[in-house]
Lab assay of single mutants.
Amino acid sequence: LKKVVALYDYMPMNANDLQLRKGDEYFILEESNLPWWRARDKNGQEGYIPSNYVTEAE
């Protein structure tokens, strides 16, 4: 899975979204639905995130 790091905080707009915290790492599960990607956080929560809020992890 592709790993990304959040560049900004993101508060979910609806139940399908995943909250982002700046500096945290996330795994990308699906990239087909631009600009929204399906992601999983370190706690196993899954949801959609804005792809322009993250960058690929080193």
Rank of each mutant, 00 (worst) to 15 (best):
G47D: 01
R40I: 10
A39N: 01
K3E: 03
G44I: 01
N52Y: 12
Q45S: 12
R40V: 11
A39Y: 01
L18Y: 01
P35W: 15
N43P: 02
N33V: 10
D41Q: 02
I49D: 00
R40L: 08
F27I: 12
N43V: 08
E30K: 06
G47T: 01
E31K: 09
P12L: 02
N52K: 11
N43T: 11
L34M: 13
D17M: 15
D24N: 08
Y48G: 03
I49R: 00
Y8L: 10
L18C: 02
T55K: 13
P35H: 15
Y8T: 06
A15L: 11
Y48P: 02
V5M: 08
A39T: 02
K3Y: 06
L20R: 00
D9Q: 03
D24T: 06
D24V: 07
G44R: 04
P12I: 04
D41N: 10
K3L: 10
L18N: 00
Y48A: 05
P12V: 04
D17Q: 15
G23A: 03
V54Q: 00
S51A: 14
L34V: 10
N16D: 13
T55I: 14
N52R: 11
Y8Q: 11
A39K: 00
Y53V: 04
V54G: 00
E46W: 06
P12K: 05
Y53P: 00
Y53L: 10
G23Q: 03
D17N: 10
R21A: 08
D41Y: 02
D9A: 04
M13N: 12
G47R: 01
N14T: 11
A6W: 01
E25I: 15
K3W: 09
M13E: 12
L29K: 03
L1H: 09
A57R: 11
P50T: 03
N52P: 05
F27G: 03
E30G: 07
T55N: 07
S51Q: 08
L1V: 10
G23E: 03
S51I: 08
V54L: 04
N16R: 11
R38W: 15
V54W: 02
I49G: 01
D17A: 11
Y10D: 01
R21G: 03
N33Q: 11
A15D: 13
M11H: 13
S32M: 08
A15E: 13
T55Y: 10
Q45D: 11
W37Q: 06
A15R: 12
L20G: 01
V5T: 10
I28Q: 02
Y10M: 04
D17L: 12
Q19L: 09
G44W: 05
S51W: 13
D41R: 02
K3V: 12
L29P: 02
K2W: 07
S51T: 06
P35Q: 15
R40W: 06
P50E: 03
N52Q: 10
Y8W: 13
Y53M: 11
K2I: 08
M11V: 13
D17E: 15
N14I: 05
E56D: 13
E31R: 08
V4F: 07
N14E: 08
L34D: 15
W37Y: 13
E46K: 03
P12D: 02
M13W: 06
Q45A: 13
A57H: 10
N33G: 11
N16I: 08
K3S: 06
K3R: 13
P12R: 04
V54P: 00
L7W: 03
Y8I: 08
A39P: 01
G44S: 04
D24Q: 13
A39Q: 01
Y10N: 02
E56C: 09
I28Y: 01
V4H: 03
K22H: 06
M13F: 09
G47M: 01
E56W: 15
S32N: 12
N52I: 10
L18A: 01
D17H: 15
P50D: 06
Y48I: 07
Q19R: 12
E58L: 14
K22I: 07
T55E: 11
N16Q: 12
F27S: 06
E31Q: 13
Y8P: 00
A6K: 00
N33E: 14
I28L: 10
S51G: 07
D17T: 09
K22Q: 11
R21Q: 10
S32D: 09
A39R: 00
Q19S: 09
E56K: 10
L7R: 05
V4P: 00
A6G: 03
W36N: 07
Q19E: 13
E58W: 13
W37E: 04
I28N: 00
S32G: 13
A6Y: 01
P35E: 15
L20K: 00
E30W: 10
L18D: 00
G47K: 01
G47A: 01
P12Q: 04
R38A: 04
Y53S: 07
L1Y: 12
A6H: 01
Y48L: 11
L34F: 14
R38L: 15
K2G: 04
N43Y: 14
L34G: 15
L18Q: 01
E31D: 12
K2Y: 08
N52H: 14
W37M: 10
D41G: 05
A57V: 15
E56M: 13
